[in-house]
Computed example of a mutant assay.
Amino acid sequence: MHPEDHTHGPDETPHTHPHPDVDPHAPLADVRDARRAVRIGIGGPVGSGKTALVAALCRTLSADLSVAVVTNDIYTTEDADFLLRNGVLPAERIRAVETGCCPHTAIRDDISANLDAIEELEDSLGPLDVVLVESGGDNLTATFSKGLIDRQIFVVDVAGGDKVPRKGGPGVTTADLLVINKTDLAPLVGADLGVMDRDAAARRGTLPTVFLSLVEDPTAKPVQEWVRSLV
């Protein structure tokens, strides 16, 4: 049975979403030509600053790009509500997915709810430039299905200690961009940013890592520039 066209019983219609292990996306150059939105997943542990980063990106990117957001929470719409309260995008550009399960399930294993949310945004808003898909807070093993996103950002924070990058895990080692967030807290928690930089490079090879403090840089400039390079 083909993974992209399967049924669960004799009376059910075919499920047309791609299998989580199948990457249906064209190369990004072709995506730009076809005007399909670049889909960027943003994951990381609870409290690492994912939603604050999404808010910053929405503020800066929406000045000249068509942006939409899908948030994932287990039992609430808290992250979407935060974005709405802060007015970073009009309400019609934000969708909330309540996963009801471990966050990585909805971004990696059964991605249908997130795909439905993206399709609803595209149908209602027309062509988009960027869709940000924020995962619920998870651990260092969290990764996105290639059937859902084109590129992945993984966010860790300095408050977790300078040992986090060397612990590795798929989120740290394979994300297209690693963001080491809340650098302004380093002196308060005794974290050595030089150690984090060294260990991230050792774990990630040529994949980029950026250091960020939204207190000092509320525009998230290095992340914003990376996203713009994809669009």
Results as ranks from 00 to 15, higher is better:
Pro14Ala: 11
Pro14Tyr: 09
His15Ser: 12
His15Pro: 05
Thr16Tyr: 12
His17Met: 06
His17Leu: 10
His17Thr: 07
Pro18Gly: 04
His19Ile: 04
His19Gln: 05
His19Tyr: 15
Pro20Lys: 12
Val22Ser: 13
Val22Thr: 10
Pro24Ile: 10
Ala26Ile: 03
Ala26Phe: 06
Pro27His: 07
Pro27Tyr: 05
Pro27Asn: 06
Pro27Asp: 11
Leu28Asn: 10
Leu28Met: 12
Ala29Ser: 11
Ala29Phe: 05
Asp30Gln: 07
Asp30Tyr: 09
Arg32Trp: 02
Asp33Asn: 05
Asp33Ile: 04
Asp33Gly: 09
Ala34Ile: 02
Arg35Thr: 05
Arg35Gly: 04
Arg36His: 11
Arg36Gly: 05
Arg36Phe: 06
Ala37Trp: 00
Val38Pro: 00
Arg39Lys: 15
Ile40Thr: 02
Gly41Lys: 09
Gly41Thr: 10
Gly41Gln: 08
Ile42Asn: 01
Gly43Thr: 14
Gly44Ala: 13
Pro45Cys: 10
Pro45Arg: 12
Pro45Leu: 11
Pro45Tyr: 04
Val46Asn: 15
Gly47Asp: 03
Gly47His: 13
Gly47Tyr: 06
Gly47Trp: 09
Ser48Lys: 07
Ser48Pro: 14
Gly49Leu: 08
Gly49Val: 07
Thr51Ala: 13
Thr51Gly: 09
Leu53Trp: 03
Leu53Tyr: 15
Val54Trp: 02
Ala55Leu: 06
Ala55Gly: 15
Ala56Tyr: 12
Ala56Glu: 04
Ala56Phe: 03
Ala56Cys: 09
Ala56Ser: 15
Ala56Lys: 06
Leu57Pro: 08
Leu57Trp: 10
Cys58His: 00
Cys58Pro: 00
Cys58Asn: 02
Arg59Phe: 03
Thr60Asn: 01
Thr60Gln: 04
Leu61Lys: 00
Ala63Cys: 07
Ala63Asp: 04
Asp64Leu: 04
Val67Thr: 01
Val67His: 00
Val67Pro: 00
Val67Ser: 00
Ala68His: 01
Ala68Gln: 01
Ala68Val: 00
Ala68Asn: 03
Ala68Leu: 03
Ala68Pro: 03
Val69Asn: 03
Val69Phe: 01
Val69Thr: 06
Thr71His: 13
Asn72His: 14
Asp73Trp: 04
